[in-house]
Design a protein around this nucleic acid. Structure first.
Length: 251
DNA sequence: GAATCGCCAGCATACGTACA
DNA sequence: TGTACGTATGCTGGCGATTC
């Protein structure tokens, strides 16, 4: 293959890649931090992000990058996690990058979630460098659920409870009484919780009921839910959605 | 090792349709 | 009109994987 042929081939590959990229739901990647970076993560990852959101409030937005010092003892106390899990999680976040894409100006950039992590031996301190862009996204995680007390989250052990609580708070924050309940179809539930259940009964059995039990046990939040059926009176009714309505904790 | 999670296969249920 | 069968869907037990 000649140099010219090679260049032409590369150009074609680049064009094909560009087309393929445009067909994908790019907006989803850069618009919703929590849905993507921690979508399939475990309880440790979720709690780490929530903790970061609580200490990043006053960072200097004029700088491209900020250094955050974490008091490990405070973090351990706040999150109920252990040091080894926190260490592993920061190492994983250090390997993770997210993509920012501007389709109008036709550019994209890849930013590492945490470019540098420094564990200071003996002092129980962790220094992390973090780009302002990323820091803003993490803070946005908290801003999206303004009524949420993040310390409540730390009591929870089930990841589905951790994801459901912010959703309940978000529904509850609607001023209009009629909007204080929300209906989700199967696909939306699977999207929210990162699962692939085939029917809504599984969602109820494996997600809603266990999460409800845990949230009520800690007296954090309660909710009512109702399965909505279609085709009543014509064949076996099909469960099409579940309506969730947050309520005041009673237990 | 126990608990939890995610999923699947087989069974149960509810209704429609064909046929005697 | 009653019965058998077909279809669509939910329910349940259980198993393997993962997490604690």
């Amino acid at each position: 293959m000649t140099r010219t042929e090679w260049k032409r081939k590369k150009k074609e590959e680049l064009e094909a890649q560009k087309k393929e990229t445009k067909a994908k739901p790019i907006q989803k990647i850069n618009n919703s931090f929590i849905e993507n970076v921690i979508h399939d993560s475990n309880v440790t990852a979720l709690k780490t992000v929530w903790y970061l959101s609580s200490i990043l409030e006053d960072f200097d937005t004029t700088k491209d990058m900020v250094t955050v010092t974490i008091d490990l003892r405070k973090m351990l106390n706040y999150t109920n996690l252990n040091a080894q899990d926190i260490r592993e999680n920061f190492k994983n976040m250090q390997k993770t990058s997210i993509t920012f894409i501007n389709e109008e100006e036709e550019w994209e950039e890849y930013i590492t979630l945490i470019p540098r992590v420094e564990f200071v031996w003996g002092k129980k301190i962790i220094h992390i460098d973090i780009y302002s862009k990323i820091a803003k996204l993490i803070i946005d995680v908290k801003k999206r659920y303004t009524l949420l007390n993040t310390s409540e989250l730390m009591k929870l052990k089930k990841k589905h409870s951790l994801r459901l609580l912010p959703i309940l708070k978000m529904i509850q924050s609607n001023n209009e009484e009629t909007k204080q309940k929300k209906t989700y179809v199967l696909d939306e539930f699977n999207e929210l919780f990162g699962t692939n259940y085939k029917n809504l009964t599984d969602i109820e059995r494996n997600i809603l009921l266990p999460a409800k039990k845990e949230l009520e046990h800690h007296k954090i939040q309660s909710f009512k839910h109702e399965i909505n059926f279609d085709n009543l009176g014509k064949g076996r009714p099909k469960a099409i959605s579940i309506t969730i309505e947050p309520t005041v904790t009673t237990s």
